[in-house]
Each structure stands twice: as C-alpha cells, then as structure tokens.
Design a protein around this nucleic acid. Structure first.
Lengths: 163, 163
DNA sequence: GGCCGATAGTTGTATGAGGCAACCATTCCG
DNA sequence: CGGAATGGTTGCCTCATACAACTATCGGCC
C-alpha cells in the first residue's frame, strides 16, 4: 500500500525529529553553561526584538507583538522581557501613542550580548556544517522552512476545518 | 567573502530552526490537550522503551540505557518511568542478573497508548505533509538526520578538541 | 463629554521538564 | 573481605510555559 510506505516514512521522519530536538536541547545546554550572562531562553526575546525594528524609528515592538510572533502567551513574554530589562539588555520606553504599551528596544549592552550569543551559535553551527556544501545547507533550510510552515498551518484544531 | 555568505546562510538556517521549534512546541501543546491520557512527554519514554526491545527476550532496557540514548539525566528518566509505571503503561520487573536494576517493558495498555499517540501524530504529520512528494520527505529526513548527527558530534566542549 | 467594552501588560499560581547532589543498595574487583 | 564503582531514587532548584485575575488605558458610542 502507498499508505504504508508513507506511514513508514513519517515514522522515520518523526524519529529524526526527536533526535534533532535532543541535539537542540544539548546545544542550548552548552550555551547556558558557557554563556551564562545571556539569561538563556531570553535570547530568543532579544533576537525577536532585534528582528522587529530595534531602531526607534520603527513602530516599535510591543510585548503583544512579540507574543504573537513567537506564539507564546503574553505573560510568558512579559516575564522574559522583564528579565532582560532587569539585566539591562532591553530598554522600555512609554509608547507616545498608547499609554498602555511600551516600546522595547535593545540597549548597547543588549546588542553586545546578542551579537556575542549569535557569534557563539554561528560558530557551533559552522562547526557542525563544516562538511556541508552550501547547496545542501540551502536545501535543508528551505525544506525546514516548508516543514515548519506546513506543520503550523495544520495546527490548531483541524477540527473546524476537517468537519 | 565566502565566509560572509556562509554566515548569512547559517543565520537563516537558525531562524528557520527557531521556527521549527515553535511549530513543534505547538504540536506538543495540541497533543497534550487532545490526548490527555498519555502523560505527555512520557511519550518519548514509551517510544524509547518500545524501540529498545520491549519484548522480554531482549537484554531489557534499564533506566540507565534510556538515559544514555536520550541524553537525559538518569533522575529525569527515573521520574518519567515512575510516572508511566504508575499509569500502568510500563511494567518493571527485577533484573535477574543485577539486583540493582529493573527491566522495563510495555504493558498491553502501554502499547495501546503508544499506538494511539503514534497514530495521532502520524495523522498530524500526514496532514502537514500532504503536499509533499515522497522524495522530498526522504531528502528532508536524511538532511535532518545528518544535521542532528553533525550538531551532536560537535557538542560538548569542542574545547578539548579545538585547542 | 463621560461611560463601557476592548485591549496591553503584569502578576499570582500551577505544571512539567530537566539538572545536580545526596543517598541507598548492590555488585565487582583487588 | 572491604572499598570503589554502578544503577536508581529522591530532594530540591531553575526555567519555560500556561491560564486566570487584575489594573490601567484606549476608543467608540450615546
């Protein structure tokens, strides 16, 4: 049956997915032990803030936006932001257009930390990929992107869609 | 510079990796809400026990083995195992050759739960991959495997290796 | 122009995963 | 036999995350 072959392929994919999660877990582990200054896990917050117009000119990233982009609960993001603010990596300024919100932006220290962490990660990644040719990397990246997108599009109650 | 191109590619890969982690987080989320019986996260333990000669004939999987294969602390695995044992999904029998250890194996209920969860996951995966042709899937799987392996081989103190 | 629903954010509380260290029980080796 | 190593468990801690309740503000409507 075609279906059986597909299922077997999916089982294998799943197994390697688990393996990848393990690898990522270990990577994060290393990072927190070797890079204790970046409050670990808040790194993604830094990166996100940076990615969303860290410059004051942009409409600014609010906690709400970060939560939306990362699919996390606002409370989670709020705590993470509080942590990086406490650590002096992010600056919170009142939004002139909305008294409820604050605009978030990296401080110089935050940028430095982010750059450090990125450099470290890039090193690790470069090490892991040293035997890959650029084409493989781009193919992998593209497939990864496609996979995440498809997985997410089929997320959240296919119930309503399927029946 | 070639190096710059490589770095850019890695940054992009990293971004999509984050995206994938998000997708997986959401997937797990769905699973725990829609599949509350399988104590969530212990699923990997079930799968591992199954993958390691769940049948009594095999040398049996000890907690130690599970910990090694999953790169988790024995204590973590111990708790997870305790949970599935409590839930009646796994049976613990004394190892005749080693009084300290116990041999773990799925109970019928455990097998059923595992099969259920696998079926559910497979469904999800099938949905996500419905527009993929088998070749893409296998390429993706292979690259994923290679990536995890390379990432892990460069894991944990490249210090000793690099200098 | 003032009130009510919506909205941004924070905080309280809970859960689950994971780690480290201390501890028991056993086993293995000199 | 006795001490070092080994398998496992448990205590305790940290993080990440969620949900719910709450506060403060905004915005539209009468």
């Amino acid at each position: 049956m075609v279906d059986d072959a597909g299922s077997a392929a999916r089982r294998e994919l799943l197994a390697h997915l688990r393996e990848m999660l393990k690898a990522v877990r270990l990577l994060k582990n290393d990072m927190s032990t070797q890079h204790p200054d970046v409050p670990a896990g808040t790194l993604s917050v830094l990166a996100l803030i940076d990615a969303m117009g860290g410059e004051p000119a942009a409409p600014g990233c609010h906690v709400k936006d970060l939560a939306a982009r990362s699919s996390l609960d606002p409370s989670t993001v709020s705590r993470a932001v509080a942590a990086v603010v406490r650590a002096g990596l992010v600056e919170r300024t009142a939004d002139p257009h909305d008294g409820r919100a604050s605009v978030l932006g990296l401080t110089p220290a935050g940028r430095r930390s982010l750059d450090d962490a990125m450099a470290w990660t890039d090193d690790r990644l470069a090490g892991a990929l040293e035997k890959w040719n650029p084409e493989d990397i781009s193919v992998f990246t593209a497939l990864l992107q496609r996979f995440s997108a498809d997985l997410m599009s089929h997320h959240h109650r296919p119930l309503e869609a399927a029946r």
